Simulated assay, not measured.
Amino acid sequence: MLKQWIKTFVVTASLLAATGAHAFTEGKDYKPLAQPQPIAVAGKQEVIEFFWYGCPHCFAIEPSVEAWEAKLPANVNFRRVHVMWDGRNDMEGHAKIFLALEAMGLTKKHQMAVFKAIQQDRIELRKEDVLFDWVKKQGIDVNKFKANYNGFSTKNQLNKLSELTKTYAVDGVPMFIVNGKWVTSPSMVGREDDTITKVINELLAKNKAPTAAKAKK
């Protein structure tokens, strides 16, 4: 009987490894969002990534996130949100970069470049003269970038980032919210690789047709 049990266990383990199957655990690898939130686009599933350009952990998983994003089906809406914690003035400059790129539709294209400049090349992009010179070198229209970076609505947009940070009770980054119901993060799964995207995919599979509600922007 013992030999048969061992054989069955080995075969099952081999199949799981071969198929890439995972069994992630609620309370360990993910948890319910304390206050469920509405999704932004009716009829679509949603994943929100809260991040900070100054966060080395966000930088570490960015390649996995970008590879995952490139394969997303049309019914999944992926949103990036730059975190804004009260009392953290060191985040505002980075958040304004995100807002400017977002307004220009360039976030996805330049997300990794911003991370590398800050985390790898140690360029202080919170200094405007340094930032605008770097932006020009990236082939981005500097005048349009400046207009969005210092735009009239920038303060309101920063306030919205702060509100979202509070609404989703973000206490660390990177953090992912799936369908306004689930929270997961690399710190929860204990790895900074594509494991986090596998957890997200499993959570998406739990709720393939979420009920949409009016979005909080």
Rank of each mutant, 00 (worst) to 15 (best):
N148S: 11
S162P: 04
F152R: 02
I140F: 10
D171V: 05
N150M: 04
M175I: 04
K160S: 11
K155E: 09
V173T: 15
F145I: 05
V170Y: 13
N150H: 13
T154E: 05
A169D: 14
F145H: 07
S153W: 10
D141F: 11
L161D: 01
I140H: 13
V178A: 07
K166C: 05
S162Q: 07
V178W: 00
N143F: 01
E163R: 08
F152A: 06
N159F: 01
T154S: 13
L164D: 07
L158Q: 09
S153H: 06
G180E: 10
F152N: 04
N179H: 01
V142M: 08
D141E: 14
N143H: 14
K166G: 11
D171H: 12
F152V: 11
G172A: 14
L164W: 09
S162W: 10
E163W: 03
K155F: 03
Y149Q: 02
S153C: 00
K146F: 04
K166D: 13
I177H: 00
Q157C: 00
K166R: 14
N148V: 05
G151L: 07
L158W: 05
F152Q: 06
P174Q: 10
L161I: 00
K160Q: 12
N148Q: 15
L161E: 03
V170W: 13
G172E: 03
F176H: 06
M175P: 03
A169C: 05
G180Y: 08
A147Q: 11
N143Q: 15
K166V: 06
T165V: 09
N159Y: 03
K146G: 00
L164Q: 08
F152M: 06
G151T: 08
D171L: 07
Y168D: 05
G172M: 07
G139R: 13
N179P: 00
G151D: 09
F176D: 00
Y168Q: 06
N143A: 14
D171E: 12
G180N: 05
S153N: 10
N148H: 15
D171R: 12
V142P: 06
P174N: 12
D171K: 14
G151F: 07
D141K: 13
F145T: 08
G180F: 02
K144W: 04
F145E: 07
Y168H: 09
I140R: 14
T154C: 04
T167P: 08
T167N: 13
I177G: 02
D141R: 14
Y168V: 11
G151E: 04
S162H: 12
G151A: 08
Q157V: 01
